[in-house]
């Protein structure tokens, strides 16, 4: 089937089998391999991208369902070489270790902040429940989102909380 969509601002179209998942379309057809596959059941969230502005799991959506949609992946988040504040937050607050869940986590976090510019810690924790991380224990991911939220609101981010933080 013919499918067309806008991915990171670029019009793309291809002939795909109906069973092609959006994540496979992105990874294999478009070679946008920043979006990852971590499970089969839609639980891990490593495949999270934005479709029409909302965070969704691209492993639980057929490519044909995204026909005509605007898709944004991790590769499309930075603009003109400037990191998105959420990306900066993950870097500044050590919000990633192995990095495999990170693209999906960042896409969820950006959608969260788009909807709620000043989330509480509890709102952040529940807002990223659809993204599993096995490395960080989420502590620094929460700090990263707090950092990004502050930046996006034009405030000074809270200082890091590790020992001897500068």
């Amino acid at each position: 089937m013919e499918v067309s969509m806008t991915v990171n601002g670029r019009e793309v179209s291809a002939d795909v089998e109906p069973r092609t998942l959006l994540v496979h379309f992105l990874r294999e057809e478009l070679r946008l391999t920043g979006t990852h596959v971590g499970c089969e059941t839609g639980y891990c969230g490593a495949c999270t991208v934005h479709v029409d502005g909302q965070a969704i799991k691209s492993c639980t959506m057929l490519a044909v369902q995204a026909n005509g949609s605007e898709v944004k992946t991790i590769e499309g988040l930075a603009s003109n070489g400037d990191l998105h504040p959420v990306q900066e937050g993950f870097w500044e607050r050590h919000g990633l270790q192995c990095g495999f869940c990170t693209p999906g986590m960042i896409m969820s976090a950006t959608a969260l902040l788009d909807e709620n510019s000043n989330p509480s810690e509890d709102e952040i924790r529940h807002g990223i429940e659809g993204n599993l991380c096995r490395c960080t224990g989420y502590h620094n991911i929460v700090r990263a989102v707090e950092y990004a939220g502050a930046k996006m609101r034009g405030e000074d981010p809270p200082p890091p909380d590790w020992e001897g933080a500068e």
């Binding site: 990874r27 070679r31 990852h36 990191l83 870097w91 500044e92 050590h94 990095g99 495999f100």
Partner: peptide, 25 residues
């Protein structure tokens, strides 16, 4: 030593540019 230097590996990973084995085709 003892400084919390921000990670050198992060810029690639936070932009989806890290190469994991399954990304290699």
């Amino acid at each position: 030593l003892g400084g919390s230097v921000r990670r050198r590996e992060d810029p690639a990973l936070i932009q989806g540019k890290g190469l994991y084995t399954d990304d290699y085709i």
